[in-house]
Design a protein around this nucleic acid. Structure first.
Length: 585
RNA sequence: GGCCCCGUCGUCUAGCCUGGUCCAGGACACCACCCUUUCACGGUGGACACGCGGGUUCGAAUCCCGCCGGGGUCACCA
């Protein structure tokens, strides 16, 4: 038995300002895996102390993102996750009564610690104006040294306390001890920061809310966190937190513990810029500029065949503002509408972006866990082991194999992982997964093709899909009306009219046979085609390509059995008839 | 700019701690060929890296120093 003191408690503490970023997803994954590996507890805490930027919707979105990934939290906000079998599992809860888990609901938790510090002059109210703060910063910059706010030498503590007690709003700052801070990071090693670099940072804002620095320290202590994993952008904050932990005590005199830290590297774009939600808007904006799009009507002018429902919900004036303002973001679906019109793939940044693009959670998890970590094991062929599931991750994950250098996100490799994961799915699994995905993210294909028709040809199309979204492209020829597509002139020439119209003759013969075929399914159609090839002495190419041109307009489509089966007999025959007429006329 | 962190193929990385088995291994991407009714899939093969300069050593991707390069951070945001 492990003693309670040895139990591992990890947490993920997002701030709800939008969907979960892929980097946050990796942090959550590692924290979760570490807790699972040690039979510990993984908890979720929502850091919503910034009233202006936090939202209820974003919190819910992050919970959903985590649940979709399959990362379940033992403690934290309650969430009902729907399982594939239709049942639901409730995530979260508060068995140790360490909640609530929204920091905005914990305000009264922080104040006693603030007062405790205040009484001992380890913290103090500050009354600087924003102007004087800016002036100090500029002065420091001019002198080429780090700006670190320190309490002025003439500070009148009694007067300041009196002003605070009189109700004057003011931030409260922590009085940073003068000694350097040294701590050990599980991945980076020993880190030392001179006290010159540390400031008397704010622990409680004038609005009464604790700052992030204060709330994390208090909450991690109260919730018993033993291991803190977070992005490397927090590395510079850690000395502040450690300094606080060293002086803070509970009411009964017990000092705070110092948990173990592990700072994970940043995930960057290929050009080394930080992956940011704005990258999606940036990509779309650049393409609009390239195409000369300046107004909403310009978008409509190019919209042939594309739905613009979400885009049209955006006021034209707002769209124009968006075009000229790098800091603006378009609503998710509006942006996707726009992207399909201008013909670009938006870079996925948030977990939800990957979900909507049709990636499987297991491949996202697998790929992302390899960014900055690797198991260091070989597979049966002696190659580095790269493809694994979360059970394996849980079994192997530890800090000693976490990398120190930043990594770039390579979408192509993710795609390869996803393609592989899809290929390993059984036909039934694929169908179930696709249907569940399409219900949320591709209603159009689901409605127009329908699960039953996809089922007919699932075996033939599964291997052609790199993502679930690709089903749409693979069956797109079946989504148009029988007279709703063009015949590619070059293909008509090459496969139908050449050789004195032999392709057309084949088409006519095939139409008759197809009409008489007892069962119009993939196998029967393939058998019929094989039979015709043997009988006529023609190569398969001479048979298949004319049919493809006739039924899809071009020379590229899934294997013919599948192509014709999903169209169904009436459409197939109607399309052949139309084509013959077209080529003859 | 100050401080902190990092530096192996285009990208993710193994190897580095405990120097020789590394004229550096794997994966993705790329190129070629094969398979094939198209497009894909698949198969086989190929090209591709130790940032630079010193030092230590019989021997350095591995240890030390310097330089250069990249990233992070400098809020009453988290």
């Amino acid at each position: 038995m492990t003693s309670p003191a040895a139990a591992v408690i990890t947490r993920f503490a997002p701030s709800p300002t939008g969907h979960l970023h892929i980097g946050g997803g990796r942090t959550a994954l590692f924290s979760w895996a570490y807790a699972r590996r040690h039979g510990g507890t993984f908890l979720l805490r929502v850091e919503d102390t910034d009233q202006k930027r936090s939202s209820e919707a974003a919190s819910r979105g992050i919970l959903e993102d985590l649940a979709w990934l399959g990362i379940d939290w033992d403690e934290g906000p309650a969430f009902n996750r729907e399982n594939p079998d239709g049942s639901t599992t409730t995530l979260g809860g508060d068995p140790r009564t360490v909640g609530p888990f929204y920091q905005s609901d914990r305000r009264e938790v922080y104040d006693p610690f603030v007062y405790w510090l205040l009484e001992r002059d380890l913290a103090y109210p500050a009354f600087d104006t924003p102007e004087s703060l800016t002036a100090m910063r500029q002065q420091a910059e001019k002198e080429k040294r780090t700006f670190a706010y320190r309490r002025a030498s003439g500070y009148d503590r009694d007067a300041a306390l009196a002003r605070m007690k009189a109700g004057e709003p003011c931030p409260i700052r922590f009085k940073m001890p003068a000694e350097p801070v040294r701590f050990r990071d599980e991945v980076l090693g020993e880190i030392t920061v001179s006290s010159d670099e540390l400031d008397d940072f704010v622990i409680r804002k004038a609005d009464g809310y604790p700052t992030y620095h204060f709330a994390v320290v208090i909450d991690d202590e109260l919730m018993g966190t033993t291991h803190i994993m977070r992005g490397q952008e927090h590395l510079n904050n850690t000395p502040r937190h450690v300094a606080l932990m060293r002086v803070l005590k509970h009411a009964n005199g017990t000092p705070f513990r110092i948990p173990k830290f592990a700072h994970l590297t940043v995930i960057a774009n290929q050009d080394n810029s930080k992956m940011s939600k704005r990258d999606r808007d940036k990509a779309a904006r650049a393409k609009c500029r390239e195409l000369g799009i300046k107004t909403a009507p310009d978008v409509h002018a190019k919209a042939a065949g594309h739905t613009l429902a979400a885009f049209d919900a955006v006021a034209p004036a707002d769209f124009e503002k968006w075009l000229g303002d790098k800091t603006r973001q378009l609503e998710t679906h509006a942006l996707e509408d726009l992207a399909s019109v201008i013909g670009i793939d938006l870079p996925e940044i948030a977990v939800d972006d990957f979900r909507r693009s049709g990636y499987l959670p297991e491949s996202v998890l697998n790929y992302v866990s390899l960014l900055g970590w690797n198991p260091g094991e070989k597979d049966a062929e002696g190659k580095d082991l790269e493809r694994f599931d979360t059970a394996y991750l849980i079994e192997k994950f530890d800090f000693d194999r976490v990398g120190k250098s930043a990594s770039k996100f390579d979408r192509a490799k993710l795609v390869a992982f996803n393609q592989d994961a899809i290929a390993r799915l059984t036909d039934d699994e694929f169908l179930t997964r696709w249907a569940a995905w399409a219900r949320r993210d591709d209603r159009e294909t689901l409605d127009r093709i329908g699960i039953e028709r996809v089922k007919l040809i699932v075996g033939a199309i599964k291997g052609r899909c790199k993502t679930l979204k690709d089903v749409r492209a693979v069956v797109s020829f079946a989504m148009v009306d029988d007279d709703g597509y063009e015949f590619n002139p070059k293909d008509v020439e090459k496969h139908l009219k050449a050789d004195g119209g032999s392709g057309l003759a084949t088409l006519a013969a095939l139409a008759t046979k197809l009409e008489a075929l007892p069962a119009f399914d993939v196998q029967s159609i393939d058998a019929l085609l094989d039979g015709h090839a043997a009988e006529s002495g023609l190569g398969m190419g001479k048979i298949a390509q004319p049919l493809r041109v006739a039924t899809t307009g071009g020379s590229v489509s899934p294997p013919l059995g599948a192509t014709l089966a999903i169209l169904g007999r009436p459409s197939t025959l109607a399309r052949i008839r139309r084509c013959v007429g077209h080529a003859a006329g």
